[in-house]
Amino acid sequence: MTKLSVNINKVATLRNARGGDVPNVVKVALDCESFGAEGITVHPRPDERHIKRADVYALKPLLKTEFNIEGYPAPEFIDLVLKVKPHQVTLVPDSPAQITSNSGWDTKQHFDFLSEVLDAFNHAGVRTSVFVSAEAEMIEYAAKAGADRVELYTEPYATDYEKSPEAAVAPFVEAAKIARNLGLGINAGHDLSLVNLNFLYKNIPWLDEVSIGHALISDALYLGLEKTIQEYKNCLR
């Protein structure tokens, strides 16, 4: 079964736009769980423009499903993850100024750095995932560096889906096969939606997890959060 992890960054963005605690990030996360989500993802950035460090600490003891913290492994991020010890940490190559993730790691170029960081998390008992493009070499070096999983960066799939779903998904199927043959778990995320998720799942049914935030929270404005989560889970059947 492919798990649905809901990224709640956009909920925190809405809260921060007004100040105060509405909407309440912890309540939304717990509601996502009660509505059927199998995980919660957060991406705390250095400027705390959406998820704050305090949110991460508040969520950890209350969540009943899988907790995934993603981010660039700067010293303060590494310190946060080692203190909180979520179920999974996802390493992304974002600079602090980026609006959102827009590329995977060059795992060959950054092999030594990633190896050191992954080793620290693995020794702490935190499952590790590295955000990569659908390229064989990048996946292979992620495995060599010690990652437990890779998260396939799916924006190219989402962009090309409307033109040709078959052509769009083909490189991701091959990448997922390579990852599986290397013994890696496989996650996927970025620009996945109710439009394109089911086709990806049907072609890569051995995905461990999809992490979805922007599209899911946007859909919830029209459908409501509970119905939206059920619609996304239906895409994974």
Rank of each mutant, 00 (worst) to 15 (best):
L207F: 08
D148G: 00
F113C: 07
A170E: 15
I204D: 02
A145M: 01
L30Y: 09
E140F: 09
E155S: 11
F199Q: 06
D219L: 13
S133I: 04
I8A: 06
D79E: 15
I40F: 03
F67L: 15
K60H: 11
I186E: 00
A170K: 15
N102K: 11
S211L: 07
V6F: 03
S95E: 12
K233H: 09
M138A: 11
K233W: 09
K10H: 10
S34G: 11
Q230S: 07
S133L: 07
E166F: 15
R49K: 12
E226R: 12
D31R: 13
V11F: 06
T2N: 04
T65W: 10
K64Q: 14
Y157Q: 07
T65V: 15
P44R: 05
H214R: 04
R237N: 15
A143V: 02
K3A: 09
S129T: 01
A147M: 01
V130A: 01
L197V: 13
S101T: 15
F67Y: 13
G39V: 02
E226Y: 12
E209D: 11
V126R: 02
F172S: 03
G39M: 04
G146M: 00
G185P: 00
V84G: 05
V28L: 12
K83I: 03
L225W: 03
N16W: 10
G183Q: 06
Y161I: 14
S101C: 14
E151H: 00
Y232G: 02
V81A: 02
L225C: 04
S115C: 06
K3H: 07
G71F: 04
I178F: 09
I139A: 10
P156E: 03
K10T: 07
S95T: 10
D160I: 11
G39H: 03
K85S: 09
L30H: 12
R180E: 15
V132K: 01
K202S: 13
A188T: 04
A143W: 00
K27I: 07
Y72S: 14
K144T: 04
D31T: 11
L184V: 05
V84N: 05
E155L: 09
L216K: 02
V6N: 03
I51S: 14
D47M: 13
A143Y: 02
D31H: 14
Y222R: 04
P93C: 08
C32K: 10
A143Q: 09
T128Q: 00
L223W: 07
F113T: 07
N181A: 10
G183D: 05
S193T: 11
I78R: 06
K163H: 13
V130M: 01
